[in-house]
Design a protein around this nucleic acid. Sequence first.
DNA 1: GCCAACGTTGGC
DNA 2: GCCAACGTTGGC
Length: 213
Amino acid sequence: MSSGRKVRKNKRNKGPSRRHTRDEEHLSGSETRYWLIKSEPHSRIDGRTGRDLKFSLEDLSLVDSEPWDGVRNHEAKRNMLDMSPGDVCLFYHSNCPTPGIVGLAEVVCYAHPDESQFDRASPYFASKSTRSNPHWWCVDVKFKRRFRAKVTLRSLKADKNLQHMVLVRRSRLSVTPVTSSEYSYIIELEKSLPDTDDIDCQPRLNVSKTHEV
DNA sequence: GCCAACGTTGGC
DNA sequence: GCCAACGTTGGC
């Protein structure tokens, strides 16, 4: 994937031993956990590589699954190391005229080394990473569903029941935990909104659409 | 495009 | 280890 927005070492969380623990938790019936992941729905070209950093919910809906790579913040990385298959992610569109949550994705695997760190042609190349000592990890996610309407950042910030959301308090973190009560509350908010055909961010007004006839 | 918030880097 | 300088995120 892309999305540098997509963002965050701690021995306890690393690698196979942690994975084993989470498997056991699942076998013993642990609850689904919830997260929020950010991505940019509009084209933005990386200066060094010329690659487009865009990755919208619609882009996710067109692939089987997508590695959530390019996250270069240790706290966000730790959050992905804590994820398990079956966890649910609120999918957030950032860096657009109306930022907000536009749908749901599902975690499909435990964290693994982020391949983009080894790829010189990637915007997320990390020169100090080696195969034997990867610095960056990511999970894969798949499309779950699109919201009937966007739950905007503005509405989340204005809601006194959501003042403790990590998204609200730590606005620059691109992968954040969400409590199950925050999750349920946001799903109720979504249900209360009128259905819309297009919940994607509108194009910026000052950008000319070159494809228009 | 501006800029606040915050993360990273590197000199000392 | 401190902290100034710098770079990035991302809302507005």
